[in-house]
């Protein structure tokens, strides 16, 4: 089976580049899988888990926002933050979740702080999700 390359571009570094069998990406309109020979495609990323499959093994990353483009067997993921399993601290993420939930209860919905807390909560949930699934 032919492979598809993944390149992760960040404003301050270029991270993973490698070949994979298939990749699952959390897009704004739902998670989607990409195999080799995919049609050219652009979408926005929503907070979620990026999964890279290669020969039976899988690498998982928490990703929070950005873009993905698929073009000529190359997936480019443009994002500001992406975290691997070992970069996440579960207790810190839990604390962040509680903090964000508390803040959201205290502030009005139109408030800028509310939206900030919402973003923080989403990030924390993705991280927790990733960590919890590690054992599965």
């Amino acid at each position: 089976m032919s492979k598809i390359s993944v390149l992760i571009l960040q404003p301050f570094t270029t991270k993973i580049s490698g070949d994979f069998d298939h990749v699952i990406i959390p897009g704004v309109e739902g998670d989607f899988g990409v195999y080799a020979e995919h049609t050219p495609f652009i979408t926005k990323i929503r907070p979620g888990i990026l999964q890279l499959f290669n020969e039976g093994s899988v690498q998982k990353y928490a990703i929070h926002d950005g873009f993905v483009t698929v073009d000529a067997n190359l997936i480019r993921i443009l994002c500001e933050t992406i975290e691997g399993m070992d970069e996440i601290d579960l207790s810190r993420a839990e604390a962040a979740r509680q903090r964000a939930e508390k803040r959201m209860k205290e502030t009005a919905e139109a408030d800028i702080d509310f939206r900030r807390a919402e973003v923080a909560l989403k990030k924390a949930l993705v991280r927790i999700d990733l960590k919890k699934n590690e054992s599965l």
Binding site: P11, F41, T43
Partner: peptide
């Protein structure tokens, strides 16, 4: 040469890409 499929729609992407573009321009 490539015709991309856009998701969700082009205006949303222009907005997002535009914002990111300004971010990296300032950087």
């Amino acid at each position: 040469p490539l015709d991309f499929i856009y998701e969700p729609d082009q205006d949303t992407l222009i907005e997002e890409l535009g914002r990111k573009y300004i971010d990296v321009e300032i950087w």
